[in-house]
Amino acid sequence: LSLSLSLSLRIRAQISRQRSSPEGRESFCHPTMIPYATVEEASTALGRNLTRLETVWFDYSAEKSDYYLYCHNILFLFLIFSFVPLPLVIVESARSASGWFDRYKIQPKVSYSLSDMFRCYRDVMKMFILVVGPLQLVSYPSIQMIGIRCGLPLPSLTEIVAQLLVYFLVEDYTNYWVHRLFHCKWGYEKIHHIHHEYTAPIGYAAPYAHWAEVLALGFPSLIGPAIAPGHMVTFWLWIALRQIEAIETHSGYDFPWSLTKYIPFYGGAEYHDYHHYVGGQSQSNFASVFTYCDYIYGTDKGYRFQKKLLQQIKEESKKCKKQVGGEKFD
């Protein structure tokens, strides 16, 4: 967090110096995002040659407004909502038809047809067109206010990783409490029950929710960038990764090869699936990404008890099979 804040302060200081100069005041009033006419001017201002990525960024964005670049999120979200869950659709269809992937299905008794999954996607797209897209179009002032920058230099990999870590941790903590609030009687009955219509979640159901919930959960996503403002590229990555993570945790499958299993304190599909399985009565597993909040505040006890119980049943079943096998051998 301190590293990310330090980098952000340095960048803000540089922007402030640019704005205080006559050239800077003129360039920052210009509708384009980069106050340099050529790559050479940008290199002179930075005191070094642009990297290859910075040159690509300059060529792409020099004549585009910051608002236009921010609105790229609409396209990114559409692509993520539409195509990232597609492999899960194939897996679910193959499992329903032939029993493949049964061993990885968290709730194997529940199957979804193509029409079921398409219906979910259709409803998500309605929400996207009516709420998510318009929200992106009108929320740019908040991005300006918190200090997301679009110019040069591009952030280093260290800065991107540090800020993304801050964003995930902050969003996870604030989302935990918003989610718990939605599980109070009024919040669940009026708003959150829509998301829980899928007691066995599927990838397309990750953004499936009441419009008020979509709006409410947008605020935790902005708190991290407000604490540690970064570049628009980092913001794009943050929004994309958060949605991809949500689709993964709503996949309904626990794949042993998932790379997220190597992330410390990561919840994952099995963890969140329990929350949907219990449904409206659930007072467990509220966290969106990590498990530390549920552990600290004691809201994972039901999940841990069930997991322990299932493990005991599995071990007893193995013992019984061994005993039966031994008797047959005798």
Rank of each mutant, 00 (worst) to 15 (best):
F219R: 04
Y292M: 09
I160A: 06
G218N: 05
Y253L: 00
G230C: 09
S142F: 14
R25M: 14
E41W: 07
S156Q: 11
F101R: 02
Y303I: 04
V214R: 07
I129M: 03
R10N: 09
K64T: 12
E41K: 09
K308R: 14
V214Y: 02
Q14H: 05
P153F: 07
K308N: 13
E189L: 14
S82L: 08
Q323N: 09
G24E: 11
Q18F: 15
I80S: 00
Y253V: 00
R180M: 08
Y173R: 13
Q136A: 13
L259W: 15
T199K: 15
H276R: 09
F168R: 05
S284N: 09
V89T: 01
L310Y: 08
G279V: 06
H276Y: 01
Q144H: 02
L75E: 02
D59I: 08
I239Q: 06
K328F: 14
I146H: 07
L114E: 15
I74W: 00
H193M: 06
F182D: 04
L310C: 03
M145T: 12
V56W: 08
A205P: 07
Y295M: 13
I34R: 08
P220R: 04
S317F: 02
S6E: 08
E26R: 12
F305V: 10
T199F: 13
A162H: 09
L169H: 12
I11E: 06
M232K: 11
M145I: 14
L222G: 02
K105C: 13
V131Q: 03
H179Q: 07
F255V: 02
A246K: 01
L88N: 05
Y297R: 14
T55G: 12
G302A: 10
R52V: 14
D300W: 03
P153V: 01
I143N: 06
Q18A: 15
H30I: 12
Y303P: 01
G326M: 09
P229G: 05
V124M: 01
E26F: 11
D273I: 01
S288N: 01
K328H: 09
I129D: 01
A200G: 00
S4E: 11
E213Y: 04
F28Q: 09
F58G: 00
V89F: 01
Y176N: 09
V289A: 07
G133A: 08
K190C: 05
I239T: 06
R122N: 10
C320P: 05
L53P: 05
W236Y: 11
C150D: 11
L9E: 13
D172K: 03
Y176I: 10
